[in-house]
């Protein structure tokens, strides 16, 4: 029992220390962001690695999520005779929730894990140390562009996800199930607000992009520099950032759509 308590205390202290390290690390990286203005090429490379390479999985997932929404929404709405509102249902679920959240989850699996593994391996092979000895700060040269790139890439990916999803729902609803296409769009436009729904969705995905990328780069820099350590850090990135996204989503939703 005492042993168990001791272990619990130790774990709690370790977790608190990690939290502190993570924030101090973030502060140092944020201080390095202004320097990127002179090196936009570094950020562009990272947008390519995190954004462009995630495009396919995001677009395909968006399409299927939208199609499923169309199908499920139709089946429910048709029993109230309200299938004309299908567009509203699809668009609202996508802009408010599914677009930002699902694309953030996919992003953490596709791009976040890759970031952690890349940085972790650089640490394990002393590349980060070597860079430091060449008088190049890895937090500015390696981490800062990745953080910024992720924050730019995710909102764009989420917008693409949402749009593809709306068209997926449109395809299922109007082409396959016979909802009137005019009603689909007009009801959608009447009910979906730009400032409340679209903009809030973009704000959400900005926050998620920041949190997921921050988790990923921190886990990479903080990992134990062995192959086992890197693999654990990669797992932790996906688990922690997914949980953070879902938890933050609840908080943001409560703040935005009261």
């Amino acid at each position: 029992m005492i042993e168990w308590l001791r272990l619990f205390g130790e774990q709690t202290l370790a977790a608190t220390a990690r939290l502190g390290r993570g924030h101090m690390f973030l502060l140092r990286v944020l201080l390095g962001l202004p320097g990127l203005l002179r090196r936009p090429g570094l950020v562009i490379n990272q947008i390519y690695a995190t954004g462009v390479l995630s495009l396919l999985i995001i677009a395909v997932s968006g399409l299927f999520v939208g199609m499923v929404l169309g199908l499920q929404g139709y089946n429910t709405l048709v029993s109230f005779g309200a299938e004309q509102s299908l567009g509203v249902l699809v668009a609202l679920s996508l802009t408010r929730e599914l677009g930002p959240v699902v694309s953030a989850l996919l992003f953490s699996g596709r791009a976040g894990s890759a970031l952690t593994a890349e940085i972790g391996l650089m640490k394990a092979t002393e590349q980060l140390s070597g860079m430091e000895m060449m008088a190049v700060d890895p937090e500015r040269r390696i981490v800062a562009p990745r953080l910024l790139g992720g924050m730019i890439a995710l909102p764009l990916l989420a917008a693409i996800f949402t749009l593809v999803g709306v068209f997926g729902g449109y395809f299922v609803g109007t082409v396959l199930l016979g909802v009137d296409s005019g009603a689909f769009w007009s009801q959608m436009q009447a009910q979906v607000s730009f400032t409340e729904d679209v903009v809030n969705g973009v704000i959400k995905s900005l926050v998620f992009g920041f949190v997921v990328t921050w988790t990923a780069v921190f886990e990479g820099v903080d990992c134990t520099p062995t192959s086992e350590g890197v693999s654990r850090a990669t797992t932790r990135t996906v688990v922690h950032s997914s949980l953070a996204v879902l938890g933050l989503d609840f908080i943001l939703t409560a703040l935005m759509f009261d």
Binding site: A91, A159, L163, V166, V192, S193, F194, D197, V198
Partner: peptide, 13 residues
């Protein structure tokens, strides 16, 4: 991405 946002703004909302 920006195009998608634009269409979301104009066509969906």
């Amino acid at each position: 991405g920006l195009g998608a946002l634009l269409i979301l703004a104009l066509k969906v909302s």
